[in-house]
Computed example of a mutant assay.
Amino acid sequence: MLSRPKWTIAVALVLLVTACGQPAKPSSSGVGDTEVATGGRLFATADAETAKLGSDAAPGVFPRTVKHSLGETKLEKKPSRVVVLDSGELDAVLSLGLTPVGMATTAGQSGVPSYLADRVKTVQTVGEINNLNLEAITKLNPDLILGSKLRANDLYPQLSAIAPTVFSIRPGFPWKENTLLVADALGLETQADTVLNDYQKRVNEVKQGIKGTPKISLLRFLSGNIRLYGNLSFIGVILKDVGLARPANQDINELAAQISKERIDQADADWIFYSSYGAGPSPDEKAVTSSGLWTALGAVKAGHAIPVNDEVWFLGLGPVGAMKVLDDLKKHLA
């Protein structure tokens, strides 16, 4: 596989040659989509800024320097004792065939996304995502710490003093780029390409089986907060990859838009997929889904309002979770 800068140049040359007589293809997301169909890659990336991060080293070769959101980190050897600070890094590391020695817990139902629970029974916890235990991390003697600037920016100096630390810019919609960054830090670039190519192949299968052109609404209940999720979200990227349309109020280059219980009509579409953050249906979900406003929605009347696993659809943030979302989409829409 070509290193990232050389690969970028190669793609540019291919596009220059093949674009003669053809109009330029605009970015449909507004965030710098890059179609990757060379070098064995079949998938598209969603965030040009995040895609700039990574290493120039040949696959699997150490030492290497990894460019990330807070600078550059040198790794003298292939890491084996990895601590992950969010569910996205956890999913990505597991998808590449490595089990971390430590992980931060989430506010989900069991502290770790349930779909990953069986794979992390022996992994030590190092506090919560927003309340990390630096002493616990130190005791694990890690040789790599993976997290994000959005989650743990202020702790980067302390973390990098414990072990080499690589931070993405943010979790969520750049989940494919984040997986590639994790792979660069681990020297598992080839494995990452395989994982993401498998995802894209599954996307293509699901896309072919979808009936019609349904519009999909993403509704999530948080504590005192009801959100409609937009394009700059983990699930928003997956829906776009599958080619599923969104209502105008969700076809936005934002993470989400907030609505009130009284305006739940704004969540209507051909299909509504909804969940609550945390353990069990939230009070807001219970109140909304038992109301007359809810039963009047077209999707509800059609039996197309589907509760989904929040820990997969909104907390997964990595390839394993993405594949499970595709399974759900095929189940309901094919």
Results as ranks from 00 to 15, higher is better:
N204F: 00
S160R: 10
V182K: 01
Y199A: 06
L244Y: 10
S223M: 04
N204Y: 00
F234W: 08
K78Q: 15
G88D: 04
K77A: 15
N309K: 12
I264V: 15
V123E: 10
K240S: 13
T8G: 03
V120S: 05
F62L: 09
A245V: 00
P23C: 03
A269I: 04
D56A: 15
V312C: 02
L232K: 14
D154G: 01
F234Y: 15
S160C: 03
A299V: 05
V31K: 15
F173Y: 15
T99V: 15
A163M: 02
S69K: 13
P79Q: 06
T289L: 04
G111F: 11
D91T: 04
A57M: 07
R220K: 14
A12V: 08
S114K: 15
L159T: 05
I235F: 11
I259Y: 08
H304L: 03
V61T: 15
A10V: 08
T38D: 06
P214Q: 05
D268K: 11
E135A: 12
E262F: 12
N130S: 12
A267D: 03
A152M: 05
L140Q: 14
K52V: 11
P247G: 09
P247K: 11
V36C: 10
P63D: 13
L239R: 04
D241V: 06
L53P: 00
W7M: 07
R4Y: 02
G224V: 08
W294R: 11
L219T: 09
L90A: 06
G292P: 04
G88W: 02
K149D: 09
I252P: 00
V66Q: 08
D328Q: 01
A305E: 04
V320M: 14
L96M: 12
S276Q: 08
S260D: 12
E76P: 02
F273R: 07
I169G: 07
F273W: 03
E254G: 00
V14F: 11
T289A: 02
T190K: 15
L297I: 06
S80I: 09
C20A: 15
I306M: 14
L116Q: 08
V300M: 09
Y156C: 04
A46C: 04
I210W: 04
L317K: 09
I129F: 11
R263C: 00
A299P: 03
G127F: 12
A117E: 14
D198Y: 01
N249S: 10
A322N: 06
G318F: 00
A104S: 13
A322S: 10
Q200M: 14
Y274T: 09
G172E: 01
P100N: 11
V93F: 09
P5T: 03
P319C: 05
S260A: 10
G127R: 08
G292R: 07
E205D: 13
T73C: 07
K207N: 03
G127K: 12
A299Y: 01
A161Q: 14
P174T: 05
